[in-house]
């Protein structure tokens, strides 16, 4: 398969950056998108050029490290997959593929296609936890009865890998789906109810401070999410926030 790649190249966070065109040949349909990037980088190294920097880790769709805005969509044209799970058979011989980093003020580019998603970590640090007594008399989590429905919903929310595709795809660069998944996952469980009010207020406050946009309910995030996190979570966070807003002291 012969392809034309148009890739965002940016030397450093302060560099201006630009799209650079790379022709590539010998790509097979069974390769993953990241393997295709590896082929390109090997060619660049042989030529003595700087390889394209991109994030990746597990390459099996669970770590949330890989990103890439491919042909105008987060994680490429396939649904419910991360970029590492995207196969080259989704493209045709002779295609031009645009490869860009996540674009958001809150996700500054570090180099080429690598962005700093530290804003997500800071949101988590501001409330994405439960306080548990670990002084020796810890209660077994399974000792608390939880309805199957709630447990399933909490689990579904917890499948969020924090890749940032929701932010990247949102026309407003809003982080609502990510934060909603994290808020929901804890708000649905008895352990999380204790700190529910403060959690949602603090996490949304941090989200706003990090410079993410506001939700306009376009629903693009849920469509592009590799883990298919539902908009139900955003509605739940909106309810949680209302409860917190009117009753927090």
């Amino acid at each position: 398969m012969k392809l034309t790649l148009k890739i965002w190249r940016q030397n450093s966070a302060t560099d201006k950056g630009q799209m650079v065109t790379y022709p590539i040949d010998g790509i097979e349909g069974d390769m993953s998108f990241l393997e295709m990037m590896d082929v390109l980088n090997e060619e660049l190294i042989v030529k003595g050029e700087d390889p394209v920097a991109f994030d990746h880790d597990c390459r099996e769709g669970i770590c949330g490290m890989c990103s890439l805005f491919i042909n105008g969509e987060a994680h490429g044209p396939d649904r419910a997959v991360t970029t590492c799970q995207l196969h080259m058979r989704k493209f045709n011989d002779g295609d031009t593929i645009y490869i860009e980093p996540w674009r958001a003020k809150a996700f500054p580019v570090i180099k080429d296609l690598v962005v700093d998603r530290g804003a997500f970590d800071r949101i988590m640090a501001s409330g994405g936890f439960v306080s548990v007594n670990t002084s020796g008399n810890t209660v077994d989590a399974n000792a608390i009865p939880i309805s199957k429905i709630d447990a399933d919903k909490a689990f579904e929310a917890a499948t969020c890998i924090g890749c940032g595709a929701c932010v990247a795809t949102c026309v407003n660069a809003s982080a609502m789906l990510y934060v909603a998944a994290k808020v929901s996952q804890l708000a649905l469980l008895p352990q999380g109810k204790v700190e529910a009010k403060e959690r949602v207020l603090n996490m949304v406050k941090t989200m706003d401070e990090e410079g993410f946009g506001n939700c306009t309910n376009t629903g693009a995030c849920a469509v592009e999410c590799p883990k298919e996190i539902s908009l139900d979570n955003i509605a739940r966070m909106n309810r949680e926030y209302f409860k917190g807003m009117i009753s927090a002291e």
């Binding site: 148009k6 805005f69 042909n71 105008g72 674009r103 795809t169 026309v171």
Partner: peptide
Amino acid sequence: YAMDNAASNS
């Protein structure tokens, strides 16, 4: 984005 296929998701 240089290329944004927003029509595919919203």
